[in-house]
């Protein structure tokens, strides 16, 4: 196989390609047009592009083929779609670009977008967000559902997209660049709590897969593997990928939030008169 064969999509999805192109195009347009003082630096631009391209890479290159026929590669794919990609995108803080793009939307259209805001706020309720984050992992890894998702092309795409979108929502809630003191962003304590709460069920599930005696996910057995590999090895590696990296990412997330909370300590006080008025 030539290098080009590895880069072309295994399962070509026009919707996916159009979505990724639009995201990058809007971001690029915003960057060029926005006032220079708000423009993110090259480091942040690089981080978001890497995050977006990682997600694209696992969905629309040869990587997707291996994800469909190897359990551990599939776990790696979801690790990027649900964790690493969205983490990089959220950490790059695209908020100034999004604000600028939002300012270009006509007031009439903005009013039409209000219900979308309601849905967003519902999904970003900490209880709902953490339930969805863990729930989706358990849902798609529930053996009968997983079996169907790997057999049906449509379900497979729904699975991957739902993981990506939910990853973006959750990590944006966690790494929201706005300070909870001066905005209605989630408080740092709650963010840390959420990260710890979602880590535990992921560790339990990962450990369950690692220590399972029999085959938990026989769809890879039934449908053939990308290359002959002992099923136990595949399952073990997949379990480890479900267990260790997500736990590590939760800890890294906690450290990042702690650092931000410590930096803000004493800098902004909610007890000055102006903020007090707006908080009561």
């Amino acid at each position: 196989m030539s290098a080009l064969d590895y880069l072309v999509p295994y399962d070509f999805s026009p919707l996916t390609i159009v979505s990724f192109v639009l995201v990058l195009a809007f971001y690029g347009y915003g960057l060029v047009r926005m006032p220079a003082e708000d423009r993110p630096g090259s480091g942040r631009i690089l981080v978001i592009v890497v995050g977006v391209m990682l997600c694209y890479g696992v969905m629309q290159t040869r990587f997707d083929y291996y994800s469909q026929y190897m359990f551990f590669v599939h776990r790696g794919q979801h690790l990027i779609l649900h964790h690493l990609g969205p983490i990089l995108i959220a950490l790059s803080n695209p908020l100034p670009v999004m604000r600028f793009l939002y300012s270009l939307i006509a007031p009439g259209v903005r009013r039409a977008l209000i219900p979308l805001g309601w849905v967003y706020r519902f999904l970003q309720h900490p209880a709902i967000a953490s339930f969805l984050f863990v729930g989706l992992i358990y849902f798609w890894l529930w053996p009968p559902i997983h079996f169907d998702a790997m057999l049906s092309r449509d379900l497979y795409w729904v699975m991957n997209w739902s993981m990506l979108l939910d990853g973006m929502l959750f990590w944006w809630l966690i790494f929201d660049p706005r300070s909870p003191v001066t905005s209605d962003a989630l408080g740092y304590g709650k963010r840390i709590l959420l990260l710890a709460v979602v880590a535990i069920p992921q560790m339990i599930l990962g450990a369950y897969i690692v220590f399972a005696r029999g085959m938990v996910y026989d769809v890879y057995e039934v449908c053939g593997r990308a290359w002959p590999m002992p099923p136990e090895t595949d399952q073990l590696l997949g379990g480890l990928l479900t267990w260790i990296p997500p736990a590590m990412m939760s800890i890294l997330g906690i450290l990042i939030i702690l650092r931000r909370a410590m930096r803000e300590d004493g800098k902004v006080s909610p007890y000055n008169e102006k903020l007090k008025a707006s908080h009561s």
């Binding site: 083929y65 469909q68 026929y69 790997m150 057999l151 049906s152 092309r153 497979y156 449908c223 053939g224 593997r225 990308a226 290359w227 002959p228 590999m229």
Partner: peptide
């Protein structure tokens, strides 16, 4: 939604096929 793959052939040219 299935695939197949070939192992490296051994000295006699026999190889396994995953399917």
């Amino acid at each position: 939604r299935t695939t197949f793959g070939y192992d490296e052939p051994d000295a006699e040219g026999n190889y396994n096929v995953s399917h």
